[in-house]
C-alpha cells in the first residue's frame, strides 16, 4: 500500500516537525476543522507520532454532528408521510433525532433511499413521478453546489416532485465563532482541503489578518496532514500569519468560481437560531 518513497517522506516530516516543535514557547492546539481529516488522523494514528507540544483538536466539520436534532426531527416526520421518498447520503441514516432515526423509520416501511449523488435523487424523482422525492441537503460548501445543480436540473426537466431540505452549513462563520469564543483556545487551523477547492483561500484571510493564527489548507493523505502541521510550525517560527495552501494539487487561491456562482444563485445564507 505504501511505497518506500512515501514512508521516507513521513520519516523526514516527523523529524522536521519534532525539531520545529522544540522551538515553540508553549504547546500548540491545532484544530482540524474537517471531519474527513479527523477520520484520516484517527485511521493513520498520526496523533501518537506527534511531539507532546502539538495537540490536535477535532473541529465542527462533520455534516452529521452539526445537524440540529430539530432538523432531524423534521426529516423523520417527512419520512412518515405517505408518498414521500427520502433521498439521503449514508451519513445520516443511523443518526437519531429526538425520537427516531431514518434507519428505524425505514424498518417501519418509510421509503428511505441512500444515494451517492444529488443527481441520483433527481433520477428517483423522474422514475417515480407520483412520489415526492425529498433530498436531504447536508454537507458544507463542497456538497452544497451539487445540491444547487440538482435543483437547476429539476427546474429544467420540470420535475415538480423533487424538493430539497437544506441543512447545508458554511465554514468561515464557524471559524470566526470559534475564534471569538473565550472558552476555546485554538492556535492554528488545518483547513478543510475540499471546502477550499470550492471557496479558495480568500474567505479565510480573516483568520490570519484579524486573529493572527496560521491557517493551512491541507489535503487528506497522512503526508499532506503532516506537511500541513509542519507549515503551521514554520509560521510560528517566523511569527508571520498567513493562509497557505499545502493541498496545491487540488486547491487554487480563487477556488472554483463556477461552483461559487451556484452557491450564490441557489442558496441564501441564514444563521440558524441558537447556533452560530
Amino acid at each position: 500500500m505504501w511505497d518506500r518513497v512515501e514512508k521516507e517522506k513521513v520519516r523526514k516530516l516527523l523529524t522536521e516537525i519534532a525539531t520545529a516543535a522544540q522551538a515553540l514557547e508553549q504547546p500548540l492546539a491545532i484544530m482540524e476543522v474537517c471531519g474527513t481529516h479527523t477520520v484520516a488522523i484517527a485511521q493513520s494514528g498520526i496523533r501518537d507520532l506527534l511531539p507532546a507540544q502539538i495537540r490536535l483538536l477535532s473541529g465542527p466539520g462533520c455534516p452529521v454532528c452539526v445537524t440540529d436534532a430539530r432538523d432531524l426531527d423534521k426529516v423523520i416526520s417527512l419520512a412518515e408521510r405517505p408518498g414521500v421518498i427520502i433521498a439521503t447520503y449514508g451519513d445520516l441514516v443511523r443518526v437519531p433525532g429526538s425520537r427516531s432515526s431514518l434507519q428505524e423509520k425505514r424498518g417501519q416501511g418509510a421509503r428511505v433511499q441512500v444515494v451517492y449523488s444529488a443527481l441520483d435523487a433527481l433520477e428517483l424523482a423522474a422514475k417515480y413521478p407520483e412520489q415526492e422525492v425529498v433530498m436531504l441537503g447536508i454537507g458544507f460548501e463542497t456538497t452544497a453546489p451539487t445540491t444547487a445543480v440538482a435543483v437547476e436540473q429539476a427546474r429544467k426537466r420540470r420535475l415538480t416532485n423533487f424538493s430539497v431540505l437544506s441543512m447545508h452549513k458554511v465554514v468561515p462563520p464557524a471559524l470566526r465563532a470559534l475564534l471569538t469564543d473565550p472558552e476555546v483556545k485554538i492556535d492554528a487551523f488545518i483547513n478543510p482541503g475540499h471546502v477550499c477547492t470550492i471557496l479558495g483561500s480568500e474567505p479565510f484571510n480573516f483568520v490570519a489578518q484579524e486573529f493572527h493564527r496560521p491557517c493551512v489548507i491541507t489535503g487528506f493523505e497522512p503526508t499532506d496532514i503532516l506537511e500541513g502541521i509542519w507549515m503551521i510550525l514554520q509560521q510560528y517560527r517566523r511569527q508571520q500569519w498567513q493562509v497557505e495552501i499545502q493541498y496545491r494539487r487540488a486547491v487554487q487561491p480563487q477556488g472554483n468560481p463556477v461552483a461559487q456562482e451556484y452557491l450564490a444563485r441557489y442558496f441564501q445564507s441564514v444563521s440558524v437560531p441558537g447556533e452560530v
Binding site: L119, T142, H194, T197, I198, N256, A259
Partner: peptide
C-alpha cells in the same frame, strides 16, 4: 477531484 458524483475541481497532475 470527484465528490458525490460531481467533478468539483481540476487536479494539477504535475503538482501531484
Amino acid at each position: 477531484l470527484i465528490h458525490a458524483g460531481f467533478a468539483i475541481q481540476m487536479i494539477d497532475e504535475k503538482e501531484a
